[in-house]
């Protein structure tokens, strides 16, 4: 029973991180129908920025809690800036181009960013200081660590915040309108370019939060972490129904649990295979995902 619960919470932690990344995928896809391949790299850059800030502040002797908060804020700021810039360089000039063009451009961007970080930093694994404050979790302390708990709690808070943002703020409403019909949104006076930029900024910020949290939890990073995490988060987004925000959260949860139980009870060698196999199966049997709508093809 204890082993089961440990796996359950492990899966929840994984799922939380996937959710934070998947939200960015799903929001961008909802608005411009593009798989933002570089999104995993944004997450990686967030983690690296967090590491650098933590390193500098740590050397300057800041208290641990301050480092934790500042590292996350700094990572969010920088990832958002990267997301914004990438959209302007690689996607905006391609609006209205053939479908394949932005996708290839996104892959190029992803390759570029990975190598940029590898060359500017290092190709080795870097140790990541454990930033998340440690304490003994009451009652369930023997099955869940404090960092796992904080990851889950932060993710829940972020998801609630995002849902409220999309539902009630002016910008959130503009996003939903643009996702429904871009031309119509333009006609009612929404600045679509601003909305698209804002979507990239919000999505990238979420990925940065995920990046710092998971890096701190695992304790090491390298330039390649964004690739696998990106594909898995994309799987989560597709599982839930791409374009749907609650779908991405649900999909991430399911993917996290699937992976956790498959590695816990079957074999840990094939950890990534389970996720990919799940992706292939969903796409074959229910391409619209759990909460997604069957897309209507217009001629």
């Amino acid at each position: 029973m204890e082993y089961f619960l440990e796996i359950l919470f492990g899966g929840l932690t994984r799922g939380s991180i996937y959710a934070l990344i998947a939200l960015g995928y799903t929001m961008v896809y909802g608005i411009i129908e593009l798989i933002n391949f570089a999104h995993g790299e944004i997450y990686m850059i967030g983690a690296f920025t967090g590491l650098i800030i933590a390193g500098v502040l740590g050397a300057a002797g800041f208290p641990a809690a301050a480092i934790f908060v500042l590292a996350i804020l700094g990572a969010v700021l920088y990832s958002a800036a990267y997301g914004y810039t990438i959209e302007k360089i690689a996607y905006k000039p391609l609006r209205g181009a053939q479908r394949l063009s932005p996708l290839i451009s996104a892959i190029g961007m992803s390759i570029f960013l990975q190598n940029y970080v590898m060359l500017a930093q290092t190709s080795d694994f870097l140790p990541f200081p454990s930033l998340i404050p440690e304490f003994k979790v009451p009652w369930i302390g023997h099955i869940i660590s404090s960092s796992e708990l904080i990851i889950v709690v932060v993710t829940i808070l972020v998801c609630i915040g995002l849902t409220l943002f999309i539902k009630f703020t002016r910008l959130g409403k503009a996003m939903r309108a643009t996702a429904q019909n871009r031309k119509m949104a333009m006609l009612v006076g929404i600045n679509v370019n601003t909305v698209i930029s804002a979507t990239f900024v919000v999505g990238s910020s979420l990925a940065a939060v995920g990046g710092v949290l998971i890096a701190s939890h695992i304790g090491q990073i390298n330039y390649y972490i964004g690739f696998i995490a990106g594909i898995k988060a994309f799987t989560a987004a597709v599982l839930g129904g791409i374009g749907s925000v609650p779908g991405a959260m649900l999909g991430a949860l399911i993917l996290g649990q699937t992976e956790a139980f498959a590695t816990g009870y079957v074999s840990s060698d094939y950890e990534d295979v389970f996720a990919f196999a799940l992706l292939v199966l969903i796409l074959i049997f229910r391409p619209a995902g759990i909460m997604g709508k069957e897309p209507v093809q217009k001629v």
Binding site: I89, A90, P93, L94, A97, S101, P102, I104, S105, I107, G108, M109, S110, I111, F112, L113, Q114, N115, Y116, L119
Partner: peptide, 13 residues
């Protein structure tokens, strides 16, 4: 690979 990536973006644009 850095140049490959950048070139892919530039070519597409």
């Amino acid at each position: 690979m850095l140049i490959f990536g950048a070139t892919m973006v530039l070519v597409m644009v």
